[in-house]
Design a binder for these strands. Sequence first.
DNA 1: AGTCTTTTGTTAATTATTTAACAATTAAAG
DNA 2: CTTTAATTGTTAAATAATTAACAAAAGACT
Lengths: 206, 206
Amino acid sequence: MRTPPHKTIERLSQYRRALLMVHDSDKTHIFSHEIAKIIHITPVQVRRDIMLIGYTGTLRKGYNVKELIDLIGDIIDSDTMIRVCVVGVGNLGRAIINYFSGKRTKLSIVAVFDSNADKVGKKYSGIPCHDIAELDEVIRQEDIKVGIITVPADQAQITADRLVKAGINGILNYAPKSVLVPRDVHLEEYDMITSLEKVAFYVKSD
Amino acid sequence: MRTPPHKTIERLSQYRRALLMVHDSDKTHIFSHEIAKIIHITPVQVRRDIMLIGYTGTLRKGYNVKELIDLIGDIIDSDTMIRVCVVGVGNLGRAIINYFSGKRTKLSIVAVFDSNADKVGKKYSGIPCHDIAELDEVIRQEDIKVGIITVPADQAQITADRLVKAGINGILNYAPKSVLVPRDVHLEEYDMITSLEKVAFYVKSD
DNA sequence: AGTCTTTTGTTAATTATTTAACAATTAAAG
DNA sequence: CTTTAATTGTTAAATAATTAACAAAAGACT
């Protein structure tokens, strides 16, 4: 199968989130229009995405929830566990640590870092906090492949540099400042202010 | 001018963030390829976006930073202040409150809500925390138009319902569960796990 | 058994977004 | 003063993503 378009990858993750929820109820099957409603997209889009990953549902019964969850896992999850660290144990860092813990079987936050001596040595949601000075060492020892940056803006670039130097392959940057990384490191950035400004824009132009 | 495409709106916000930073230094002008590098896009895209909003730079000198900042403001900002509230004063809520305070001239977080009695009555970054029971009343009194949801997943929908009922026009939902709102309420949702799964996906397929 | 309705799967059409191409122009260099 | 290099603005082309259209099948209803 050709690897699906970027947008489809994104939606697969959303589909799974939704499916995991309905799976907790007693529903075994779900229609494309039901998934669509949850994600706020059209049923056609759902069917098209599902077609792209080579799954077929049952006419007039819809898609088997468990099967679809598993297939999405086969596509977007790694075979092996991907080990992740969070740099910066401020409010946002803690929110992420908390939120993720145990949520996915193939992703695991195994270390967090901070420069604040009061935080070093403590555990956050069971994950040990190291001094940022040990970043390189811990990342190698723990075989960490992805780093999440939640430090203040003025430390974003230096943090990214350190992560790259330590051999990380992917970075998710939440600091309100873009960072530069080599082309072989996958970078994802998110700025909350952009989202809020977008909402504000579309609200005002009503 | 026709309103710019969605993606352009998003990038305008990013351009401004970048421009505000270079404006703090002594640079008065900036080239399209300089902006492009910061945002990780191509110079052509930058020029095209700037063309769409009707601004013109100077050949071989680039764009006037201050003028461009102002023009982007004219387009994406509201004429009047847009008043915003945050529902849920957990780690994520506090991260947002902290991060936003005073960052933009036309957006202001004026109230936060929580159900925890220990938090009600306190101030967070100078913003008073109200009991969630007073949500409707405060939103009307304070003329709040946008709500940010940072409550746990199981309270996301009921929070959205309350916000809608109180007359809000836009919602930014950070709870890890989609909510349903009437079509006239602009909804933006963001789930951190989708971003992390995307990074993991592109990391593994290297 | 036959008809109607619903729902999937898929191809084709449409729309949105990005990238390429390049003329025009300005500053710098020689 | 002439040439070269750099940079914008814009139209055209290419690519990506979404939506429409509809045949096929399966269950529901009579």
